Simulated assay, not measured.
Amino acid sequence: MERVADVRSGVGESPFWHVAEQAWYWVAITEKKIWRYCPTAPSSQASLQYWNTNEMLGCLTQAADGSFIAGMESGVFQLHLSEAHQVQAKRLAAPAELGQGMRFNDGRCDRQGRFWSGTMFMDMAQAKAIGHLYRYSAQQGISTPFVSGLFVQNGLAWSPDGRTMYLSDSHPNSKMIWAFDYDCEVGVPHNQRVFVNMKALESRPDGAAVDIDGCYWICGNDGSRLLRFTPEGKLDKEIALPMKKPAMCSFGGPNLDTLMVTSIGVGQPEDDEWAGATILLRPGTQGIAETAFVVD
């Protein structure tokens, strides 16, 4: 298990491995920052870079043209990263239901390169189940909500063949993970069903990833754990983590056999050196490369 520099985030989220650059990206939501870590860079200064944004980012993914797609406070954006730590941002879409006090949260592309993300009310203590799940594509724009009534949308992932979609709700009032049948041709989920009810476990479901065997890895927020569930929803592996609030995991590295795990520092003790840390570990299996957003 390896710590990525001495970076501590208020809410570290949305890690992914950029294959072309052989580098990791993730976001620090409360700091409005994008981080990039290149393990093979010739100097420590070059290996770790950051960019500032004008809004909080809930999620980030690569696009096929070299830009990035992000779910932010006021909508879905296309981002271009400059060498001066600045970001050129163009808003692509904003759903009508995105009200005051809300933002986009977890998101990534399906196997065909369509971007999916959901919204949440930022003050979790108010327990407002007004979040929605959306699809965005360059051809069709932003969809109407596919799933509604979410407290804290999270856990998006797809099976290796893309025909099963996963979604979670992290709020203590929910703690659910669902599976859907997914129509790859048109990008529509249906047949929503309970995949795992985590109310019996000591942690909440947060961000997730799928390995080459189709197993679903999810961060056990509040439980200092990574949990792996088989495609049948059976818990078959747990990995203890040094941070109490792991937030999201993603497979990467040259052989896709490394997991990057981000975490949450907000609300944790000042002397907790692992709160908000980002780590790398080898879980004993491989993942699947993230699909870039299809621009046209």
Score class of each variant (00 low, 15 high):
residue 108 R to M: 05
residue 143 S to D: 00
residue 24 W to L: 10
residue 21 E to W: 05
residue 217 W to T: 07
residue 2 E to M: 11
residue 151 F to Q: 11
residue 87 V to G: 07
residue 238 E to G: 04
residue 146 F to P: 04
residue 235 L to W: 08
residue 160 P to D: 05
residue 175 K to A: 13
residue 151 F to H: 14
residue 39 P to G: 02
residue 19 V to M: 03
residue 151 F to S: 03
residue 226 L to I: 12
residue 11 V to W: 07
residue 28 A to R: 10
residue 257 D to S: 12
residue 154 N to P: 03
residue 110 D to G: 01
residue 85 H to T: 06
residue 73 E to C: 02
residue 142 I to G: 01
residue 256 L to D: 13
residue 83 E to C: 07
residue 259 L to Q: 09
residue 89 A to V: 02
residue 55 E to W: 02
residue 250 S to A: 15
residue 80 H to K: 13
residue 187 G to M: 01
residue 158 W to L: 09
residue 250 S to W: 09
residue 163 R to H: 12
residue 120 M to A: 10
residue 56 M to V: 09
residue 36 R to V: 09
residue 74 S to G: 04
residue 213 D to F: 03
residue 119 T to H: 05
residue 139 Q to C: 04
residue 250 S to G: 03
residue 18 H to I: 08
residue 21 E to T: 08
residue 71 G to R: 01
residue 13 E to S: 04
residue 18 H to S: 11
residue 31 E to Q: 14
residue 112 Q to T: 03
residue 285 T to P: 02
residue 158 W to D: 00
residue 266 V to E: 15
residue 130 I to V: 15
residue 293 F to V: 09
residue 160 P to W: 09
residue 49 Q to T: 04
residue 224 S to Q: 08
residue 76 V to Y: 00
residue 126 Q to N: 11
residue 71 G to L: 08
residue 125 A to D: 14
residue 194 V to S: 04
residue 124 M to I: 12
residue 201 L to M: 15
residue 251 F to G: 06
residue 74 S to H: 10
residue 288 I to F: 00
residue 143 S to N: 04
residue 164 T to L: 02
residue 190 H to I: 02
residue 35 W to K: 08
residue 204 R to W: 08
residue 103 R to Y: 02
residue 204 R to Y: 10
residue 52 N to D: 11
residue 295 V to C: 14
residue 288 I to S: 04
residue 167 L to K: 01
residue 86 Q to M: 10
residue 18 H to Y: 09
residue 28 A to S: 15
residue 44 S to N: 14
residue 30 T to S: 12
residue 276 G to P: 02
residue 66 G to A: 03
residue 86 Q to R: 14
residue 176 M to V: 08
residue 32 K to Y: 05
residue 181 D to G: 03
